[in-house]
């Protein structure tokens, strides 16, 4: 298949394809045979005709067409609405639907983790060695991240939680207790099923010298 797939009648009496001349007018390509074209009345007449014919097309193509000013705003409003809808857990019941916002799930998970002995929440990107005898101050270590990150799909929940623990305790043991506690609280309070809890230990909290030895058995 070529550009010249039309009938022979598309040829001018001089043998030049009218399509070639259209191509020349539209794309501004140079003539195949400039010497012939300069002296051929058929070519020059057709070129003039096509140039006049195509002029309003080129003029329209040069129009400065811009999207309406409110288009982007409208799109982003819908995008945000979609994002909000996607960030809710959905529980379907015969009587209706219950949506629980992700931040609510995150708050429950955070409080559940904090209720585990030897755990405090650490916000932000990690910080070591809170001075002995001092409580971890979330606001002091806070970055832009939250202590919990929650993924929701239907009634399934995945939680990432960042914690600080007392120095000397078994971190795997504490982490497991945090997992169990979060799943238990979320099940009891929201009815959601926790499929995964990822615990990130980002800080340790030395105990004051006068404190009693740690019991490794956690409540």
């Amino acid at each position: 298949m070529t550009d010249h797939d039309g009938p022979d009648s598309d040829r001018l009496p001089c043998g030049v394809h009218a399509d070639d001349l259209l191509h020349q007018v539209v794309d501004g390509t140079p003539p195949r045979d400039p010497v012939h074209q300069a002296s051929c009345p058929h070519c020059r007449a057709t070129l003039t005709h096509l140039t006049e014919l195509w002029a309003p097309v080129l003029e329209m193509a040069r129009e400065d067409v811009r999207a309406p000013a409110d288009l982007l705003q409208a799109v982003m409003a819908e995008v945000r609405a979609l994002a909000r809808a996607g960030w809710s857990a959905v529980l379907n019941d015969e009587a209706g639907q219950t949506q629980i916002a992700a931040r609510v799930v995150g708050a429950i998970a955070r409080l559940a983790a904090e209720s585990v002995p030897h755990v405090s929440l650490a916000l932000g990107g990690g910080r070591v060695a809170t001075p002995a005898g001092e409580h971890t101050d979330p606001s002091a270590v806070a970055g832009h991240e939250s202590a919990t990150d929650v993924g929701l799909a239907g009634d399934r929940v995945v939680v990432d939680v960042q914690i600080a623990v007392d120095l000397g305790v078994s971190m795997p043991l504490v982490a497991q207790r945090v997992r169990d506690r979060i799943a238990e609280h979320l099940r009891a309070q929201t009815g959601l099923t926790t499929t995964e809890v990822n615990v990130i230990v980002v800080d340790v909290r030395p105990l004051p010298p006068t404190s009693e030895p740690l019991r490794t058995t956690l409540r």
Binding site: R66, A67, L72, V75, M76, V79, R80, A83
Partner: peptide
């Protein structure tokens, strides 16, 4: 990854050309 600001920038970049084609 869900970054709305990044998507808004993409939309802003391409909206005029898309509108031109659609029109």
């Amino acid at each position: 990854d869900g970054d709305e600001v990044a998507f808004a920038a993409l939309a802003r970049t391409h909206q005029d050309r898309l509108y031109r084609v659609a029109l």
